[in-house]
Structures are given as C-alpha cells and as structure tokens.
Design a protein around this nucleic acid. Structure first.
Lengths: 210, 210
DNA sequence: TAGATTGTTAATCGATTAACAATC
DNA sequence: TAGATTGTTAATCGATTAACAATC
C-alpha cells in the first residue's frame, strides 16, 4: 500500500524510459544520460532526473546512467522483473490479436487463459491458449493466483465482467471496452479507448485546418 | 492552428464525457448534470463544468445538460461530426483486429486502406479492405486527401513509416509500436503502448502486495 | 585538472478544487 | 417561490522547470 505518492505522469514516463532504454540496449549502447533520454522522449533532462529521483539514485554525476543497470532497476520498480500471469476475457477480434501479441511476453506478462461466453469459441485454441467458459473464471483465477486481467468484451457487459473479476480476486484490470469502469478500492483499472485516441487526432488536425 | 491553449487532460476528458453521454443516450436519458457525469467518470462536478467552459456554454443553470445536444456539441468540438478517412500501415494481428473493429466507424473514423510489405498479404482483403503495397501509399493519401493514419508495424520500422506518412501529407498518427516517434511540427502523434499499460498495473498491484 | 552530468532545492507554471452569484 | 445547477472567479494544490553544488 505504499507509493501512493508517486504522481501518475511520473509512473507513465517510467515505462517510456524503459522502452527507450531497451531500444538503446539492442543497439549496443552501454550508457546514456538524462539529456539523451529526454531528447528521445521529447521532454527535459531535469524531468528525467526528477522522475528517477522518486525511486533512488541510479546514475553517476559526470558519467550518466548505465543502460543495462537502469533497465534492471526500472523493471524492478515496475515489478516486471518477474512474469505476471494474465487472463483475457472476451475473445473477439481484439482479444484474439492480444493473445497473439508477442510484446506482452517480452515485457513480463503472459496471457495464460482466455474466457468467452460464445459456445462456438469455447474449447477452441488461439495462440496456444484454450478458450474457456466464464463459469471457470473464478476457479482459474483462484487456483493459479492470477492478479491481472484484460477485458475485451462489448461495453454493455464490461462492468459486469469487471465485478466478476473483482470477486474472483483480480487486482488489476486493463479495459479495452469504451466504458468507464468502477471497482472496489485496491483494484487498479486502466482504460484503453481507441476511438478516444483518434478523437484527439481529429481535434488537432481539424483545428489546424481552420 | 488555434486551440493550442486547451490543456490536453481537458481534451482527453472530452472524449470520456462523450462516451458516457452516448451511453446515457442509448439508455434513453434526455438530460444529465455535471454531477452525474462526474460520478460516472470519477471526477468532480467542478471539473466537468470547467472543462466544458473552455468551449462554450452548453448547459442551463438549475436544469443541467441535454444529452443529445451535448453529444452533438462535443462531436463538433472533436470534429467527429464528420467521417474521417484513415489508413492503416501494418497488417499483422493487431492491424487485422483494428480493420475489423466496428467502434471506429461508430465514432466517425473509417479505415479505408491498408498497407503492408509482405507479398503474401498484398492483394488480400481484410474486413473488406484490400491490402496494398507500400509504394501506393503516397498516391492513395494524396488522391483521397487522407489526414489520419494508424501505425501497427514492428518498432524498428515505425519511425521510417512515420517519415513516409508525413512526407505523404498525413497530419495525425496513432502509433501502436512501442517506440517514441518524432514528426515535424503540425503533425500530431498519439502512442498506445499496451505493455506500458500493463506495467502501470503491475506497479500498483506489486506495491500493494508489500 | 577540466568538462560533464548527476541529484536536489527553490521558483515557476499550470491544473484542479472550492465557492458563489446568476439563473432556470 | 424554493431548490437545483450552471458558468466563472479566486484559492489551492501539484507538477514542471531552472539552477547549482556535489561528484565523477
């Protein structure tokens, strides 16, 4: 229950720093600086240093940061220095794409079970994961001690599914349905609203046209 | 080039208000209030009113907001009171899911062309959209006056694709590759990083465990 | 050593919240 | 009218930026 004090923009940038550092690592760089990270992410060096300072001292004055080391430390902070088991609810087009998505695994997340209501889907297998009926959800979550879930169901059933997940013991939900979800304290919800993202673009592009 | 002064959190919430209002409309509600909207979105009534006040006066004191009317006004502000043509670059699993995704259309966006480099994919059709070779990109964007693009290619080629899109005249890019993209002034970029979303969850859930 | 870059404090900037007169 | 709710101003809160001593 600690770390309630970390501003969420900081936490979000941590993920972006990690992504950039991983990129630098694959390109063979061994060290970097707050300035170089800032340039890549279009922010300021002061902000990079301030963000990291919430969690400790990771660099050396006059030298910068060791890429591999900082990657390790960020993964530790974000708790992706282990593999999280994740379940998927809703095996529609988006759900199937997420099951096949390789980048989750690479970043410490593994979709290990999928649930749907459709009789045609139940029993079938997508990317090696068997689609199960909803009634098995609570059992699987409990037995395998799963904490995270991805919701990719139609908006009108998303809240119901979330209630079910919370009762089963899920503590983090990534929601792709375009609905604001409510959950008890202690459960974290993140929403990915694809249409909203496009709306941000149309606003800016449309405004520029005038 | 106006409206540079709207804070981006405000703009983002506009999309969330719109989503909620559309939900209320399907449930038959004809009016609502800043308080009810705030409750649904877990914010405050003052913030709802302040956000809307950036754009005009949409409610009536003592009464509230007419749902249908406010939907219209928000769509006008976000420029989704018309249909935007959008192209997709990268027809992998995620790209295919996006082509099949119905909620874009419902919100004012239509994926009308798809591009990929893979010879096996080129010429095939997904959800009624033919996959074209990259060399046709510039031509299609120019002829059909397309402003928006979705990028769903591997991270190592995402910047190159973006450069190509900008040269072709694209003004807004929704990027699904886990890479920070750079573009000239006047081009808006939005990034959707799915792994980063899960990392936010693992941070919170992991911190709660300690 | 000289140059570079950190971690951190203080100053600035911007966004959220509270309060209330105006109005339906 | 009385109760409700807006739009808006002023007060608060929080996040970003600038600056610099410490250090490699």
């Amino acid at each position: 229950m600690k770390n309630q004090s970390i501003p969420s923009p900081v936490l979000w940038r941590l993920s972006l720093y990690l992504r950039q550092l991983e990129h630098l690592a694959t390109k063979g760089f061994e060290k970097t600086s707050s300035r170089k990270l800032a340039e890549a992410l279009q922010t300021t060096d002061a902000q990079v240093r301030k963000d990291l300072a919430y969690f400790g001292q990771f660099g050396r004055p006059g030298v910068g940061y060791r890429v591999g080391e900082l990657i390790g430390q960020l993964r530790h902070i974000l708790r992706t220095d282990r593999l999280w088991k994740v379940i998927l609810v809703g095996v529609g087009d988006l759900g199937r794409a997420l099951l096949r998505h390789k980048s989750f695994r690479r970043n410490g997340f593994e979709l290990i079970a999928a649930f749907d209501t459709s009789p045609e889907l139940i029993g079938s297998s997508v990317a090696g994961v068997t689609v199960r009926p909803m009634r098995q959800l609570s059992d699987v979550v409990g037995k395998l001690e799963i904490k995270l879930a991805v919701v990719a169901v139609p908006p009108d059933v998303a809240q119901g599914v979330t209630d079910l997940l919370c009762r089963a013991g899920i503590l983090g939900v990534l929601n792709f349905a375009p609905t604001s979800l409510h959950a008890p304290d202690g459960v974290t919800i993140r929403q990915v609203d694809l249409a909203a993202q496009l709306e941000q673009l149309s606003f800016h592009v449309g405004a520029a046209e005038d």
